[in-house]
Computed example of a mutant assay.
Amino acid sequence: MNKGTVKFFNDLKGFGFIKEANSEQEYFVHVSGLMNDIRQNDEVTFDLQEGKRGLNAVNVQLV
Rank of each mutant, 00 (worst) to 15 (best):
G33W: 11
E26A: 09
K13A: 15
K3I: 07
T45L: 08
N22M: 02
L55H: 05
Q25H: 03
H30V: 12
Y27R: 07
I18G: 04
K19C: 07
K19I: 13
V60I: 04
I18W: 02
A57P: 01
E50F: 05
V29C: 12
L48I: 00
N2G: 06
G16A: 14
K13S: 15
V29E: 07
V6N: 05
D37N: 12
L34T: 03
A57H: 03
F28Y: 15
L12W: 00
N56G: 04
V63R: 09
F9R: 02
E24A: 11
N2W: 01
Q40I: 10
L55D: 10
Q61H: 12
N41Y: 15
K52Y: 12
E20W: 00
G54K: 09
F15H: 14
M1W: 00
N22T: 07
G33Y: 10
N41P: 01
I38E: 03
E20K: 11
Y27F: 14
G54A: 07
D42G: 13
S32W: 02
E43Y: 12
T5H: 06
L55Y: 05
G4M: 02
G16M: 10
N22D: 15
G54C: 08
K13G: 12
L34V: 04
Q40V: 13
V29Y: 03
V29H: 05
K3T: 15
V31D: 07
K19Q: 15
D47Y: 08
D37Y: 00
D11M: 05
L34E: 01
A21N: 15
M35W: 00
N36W: 01
S32N: 13
Q61E: 14
S32V: 07
R53F: 03
T5N: 05
G54V: 11
G54E: 11
Q49T: 11
L48H: 02
S23N: 06
M1F: 00
V63L: 13
F8I: 00
D11E: 13
M1L: 04
D11V: 07
A57S: 09
Q49S: 13
Q49H: 12
Q40R: 14
Q49N: 11
V60A: 10
S23D: 08
G54S: 09
V6S: 08
R39D: 14
Q25L: 08
D37E: 13
